[in-house]
Design a protein around this nucleic acid. Sequence first.
DNA 1: GTACTTTTTGTAGAGGTTACAATTACCTAT
DNA 2: ATAGGTAATTGTAACCTCTACAAAAAGTAC
Lengths: 241, 241
Amino acid sequence: MAKKKPEKKDLYSIPIDDFFKSAFSVDCVIFGYHDKELKVLLIQRGASPFEGDWALPGDLVYPHEDLDSAADRVLMDLTQLEDISMRQVKSFGKVKRHPLGRVITVAYFALLELQEISPMASSWAKDIKWHSVKRIPKLAFDHKEILTECLNAMRSLIKHEPIWTRVLSKKFTLTELQELFETVLMKKYDKGNFRKKVSAMKFLKRLQESQVNVRHRPSTLYKFDHKTFVQYRESGNVVEF
Amino acid sequence: MAKKKPEKKDLYSIPIDDFFKSAFSVDCVIFGYHDKELKVLLIQRGASPFEGDWALPGDLVYPHEDLDSAADRVLMDLTQLEDISMRQVKSFGKVKRHPLGRVITVAYFALLELQEISPMASSWAKDIKWHSVKRIPKLAFDHKEILTECLNAMRSLIKHEPIWTRVLSKKFTLTELQELFETVLMKKYDKGNFRKKVSAMKFLKRLQESQVNVRHRPSTLYKFDHKTFVQYRESGNVVEF
DNA sequence: GTACTTTTTGTAGAGGTTACAATTACCTAT
DNA sequence: ATAGGTAATTGTAACCTCTACAAAAAGTAC
C-alpha cells in the first residue's frame, strides 16, 4: 500500500486558472398537479443560445450563493413561492452540453399545486407555460434528459417521502390523495384497498369534518401531520404508497 | 401567465466573467468489502489545505473532461481499475466548503473487492489506506458529510441494483451473498428464508458445480447473469434484497 | 462407520394483499 | 317525504408472502 505510482499526468501541467473558467447552473423541474393532470413549467428562451426554444427554467449560480439557494431563487423568481425547498436530483456535466462554455448544471425538482401559482416570465424568458408531461416539446440543451431523470426521481420519491403535501389542500379526502398517486405514478389503485392501507398510516389524521355541497355521500377529510410523520419514521417505519 | 415580473435582480449587473471563476471537483467514495468487513479508501493529504488530514480521494475536473470520466479517472489513478463506472450520488455546493475558492464537488461511489486492489498514492497524497466504515477519522473539507451520504446511497441502491457483482467472485455461494448483504446493511437474514427468496431470482443461475475442499457439506455455486437480469427488469419486475 | 459442520429442504402459522360485493350517507328531483 | 343517483365506506374470502423454526442431506475428518 502507499507505493508511489510511477507515472501520473501532472495536474499542474495545466495552469490552475484554467480550472476556474467554468460555471455552474441549476435547472429546475417544477411539476404542477391539478385535477388528475401532471404538468411541468417550461420557459421559452429569450436569448441565445437556443433562442425561441422551450427549456427548463434555470440560471447560473451566483459566486456567493449556495447551490440549494440558487434553485430556490429560480423557483421564487418564477412563482413568488418562498418557503419551498427544491430537491436535488443529479448533476449533468458533459463537456459539450452548453455551446458557450463549460457549464455543469445541477437539476432540482419541486411538486406544486398548479392553480395556486401564476408563473411569470423572467428577464431571460419570452414566455412561460405549463406543459403536460405527456406532451413535451423539443427542449434546449440536454433538458429533455434532465426532465426525464427528474420525473423518474420524483416518481420514486413520492412513494416514500411526503413531497405531495403541497399539492393537496390542508384538508383533503382519501379519494383526492388516491387520484394524485394514480396520476403521478400512472397506475390504478383499488379504492377499498387504497383507503385501508392509507388510513392505517398514523400520520394521516382523520378529521371530524366532511365534504359539503357534494351530490353524493360526503367524504371524511384528513390532514397530514408532519410531527407524527417524523416520529413514525424515527421509530423505524418505512412509508410506502 | 407570462406577465413580466416588475423587478428582478439583473443577472448581468454582475460581470459574466465572474461566473467563470469557479471550479468543480469529483470526490470518490471507494468502498471495499472483504470477509464480512466494509471499508473505505481514504488518502492523507500531501498538500495544503488540510495537509496531513485524511480525506476522500478526489480531483478537479479537467476543462475538457466529462464529469463521469473524471470520477473514473480518479478511481483508475488509485487502483488501476479501468472498467468500473462510478455512480453519481449528489453534488455539494456550499459557498465556503473549500477554503481556496468556489469549488462545487460531485460525489461518486463504487463498491469493490478489497483484496483485488493494491491502491497507490497519487502525487497529491502522502498515504492511502483502507478504513473501516465503523471507525472513520476526522476528515478534511465536508468529506464526512459526503461519506455519510454516499454510504446511505450505496445501502439503498444495493437492494435494487447489482452493484455487488464486483465484490464476489464470478462463482459464489448463497452464503457468501448473504454475508455481503448482512455486512453492508447491518442486519441479519434467516438462512433458509434468504436462500429461498434469492434462489427464486431468475438472474441468479445455479451452476452444476459445488465448493471443494471444505470441511462440511459443499455449497452449490451460483453466478449472476447480466442478460437475464436486464430482461427480468424489462418485464416489469422489481428486485429487492 | 461416526461425529461434525454447514447446506438444503420443509412446514405451520401469522400477517398482509387482492378482487369484489354490500352497505351507507348525502344530494336532487319528484 | 320518497325514490334515485352517486360516491364513500365497510366487509370478506381467497390467495399470497413472510417468519420462525425444525428436520434431513452431503460433504470432511477421524
